[in-house]
Design a protein around this nucleic acid. Structure first.
Lengths: 220, 220
DNA sequence: GTCTATATTAAGATAGAC
DNA sequence: GTCTATCTTAATATAGAC
């Protein structure tokens, strides 16, 4: 993947021109702030100091540019998450590490958040990409949680399928909350969820008279 | 609010024409599927059988139409949430009730999800609306949780500020997960979080040898 | 209340010079 | 590798007839 960047190699196997990378960086900002639909190629071209035709030399279509933006940053979080989740001593720390990372990169978070929401539409050029990505992230989370169960870090009766989906959803939702309110403590709030997965600390149950649950529509 | 729909009253105090409502309904679908930026007024006009100028009679600008779409549906979930959370016997059931509702209205969920993500940009016409809305939802959740604490439904030591933010974020994230994968059990996954808030059931701790937590970047 | 016609601006994309 | 110039289509919006 990310091999054969067509038509832009300088040397025999130069993978990416300087310009190409500059354009991708700027496009990431624009797509993040205004969305894919809300951003024009002219706008990006202007930002890079190129003419629109000059931009189109590097990325013949708008979709090509979006794909390049997605690919350029997909390696980082994906690999980071994979390695962190799978090989960290504490697999749960791998998840929080991803969030710590995100908290220092607003542009990236905003791009993935906004474009993935747009990509909810089946006709969006990145629809397939984000649907698949969602599955992958959930699977990575489940793997980390299973490992945590084995290591005795979380309750043995934890439903890892549910917990993994919760982690993915919470991570996403916290990012949006944080984008609207940068004072949001994404890391702490996520950690709070993980704490709920932990083996119960020997705390005396303060009042166990009525532990019923809202027993309604759980079946939807 | 929602009084004085300017220029479209038939009778002396008719609040909304039939056409107006039809347009709003269709715009909700379009904005949901393609986003605000990705949808044109011509498109919506075509969908209603009007010409573009005909549409502009009812909504002079695109922003006016977005505002109307937002207002038209804001009453429903807001009031529903407020009443459900505040006056239900079990305040937690009020939250799940909202999700049950959402699970049967994809168009609505998609519109709020996609447009709010777009509105992350400060220049987006609905930016202020969604930033405020986020705060309101969190506050409603906190109110419900506080009530639940009083009723002994959840742990006394629960951090309601954290929990409320978690609820809002999870609800949002689950909606996106569900939009990409309609088999997602939003209700069950949300309920699972609430279960974690409950007073601990008297379950014997299976293995309490090592209950340390990932003690890293919680301070970000 | 809805139309046709039009103004203006901008979109994505191509051709071909340099 | 980048430009100017241009094509084609479509965007928001207005004017004014019916």
């Amino acid at each position: 993947m990310a091999a054969a960047r067509n038509g832009t190699r300088r040397g025999p196997y130069a993978k990416s021109s300087h310009q190409r990378d500059r354009i991708i960086e700027l496009a990431l900002d624009y797509f993040g702030q205004q969305g894919y639909h809300g951003t024009s190629m002219r706008e990006i071209a202007r930002g890079t100091g190129l003419s629109q035709a000059g931009l189109l030399y590097h990325f013949p279509t708008k979709t090509d540019l979006l794909t390049a933006v997605l690919e350029s940053r997909d390696t980082l979080p994906e690999v980071a998450a994979r390695s962190a989740v799978e090989r960290a001593q504490d697999p749960l720390a791998g998840m929080t590490a991803v969030i710590v990372d995100n908290a220092s990169n607003r542009q990236l978070v905003q791009m993935f958040t906004v474009v993935s929401a747009e990509a909810t539409d089946e006709r969006h050029p990145a629809h397939g990409y984000f649907r698949q990505r969602s599955q992958i992230v959930i699977a990575l989370m489940r793997a980390g949680l299973e490992q945590a169960v084995e290591q005795g870090l979380v309750r043995r009766d934890l439903n890892v399928d549910y917990a993994a989906r919760q982690c993915q959803a919470l991570m996403y939702g916290l990012q949006v909350q944080w984008l609207f309110d940068p004072s949001t403590d994404m890391v702490g709030l996520f950690q709070h969820l993980l704490d709920g997965f932990a083996v119960p600390t020997p705390r005396p149950p303060p009042d166990a008279k009525d532990s019923r649950r809202a027993a309604d529509a759980s079946g939807q």
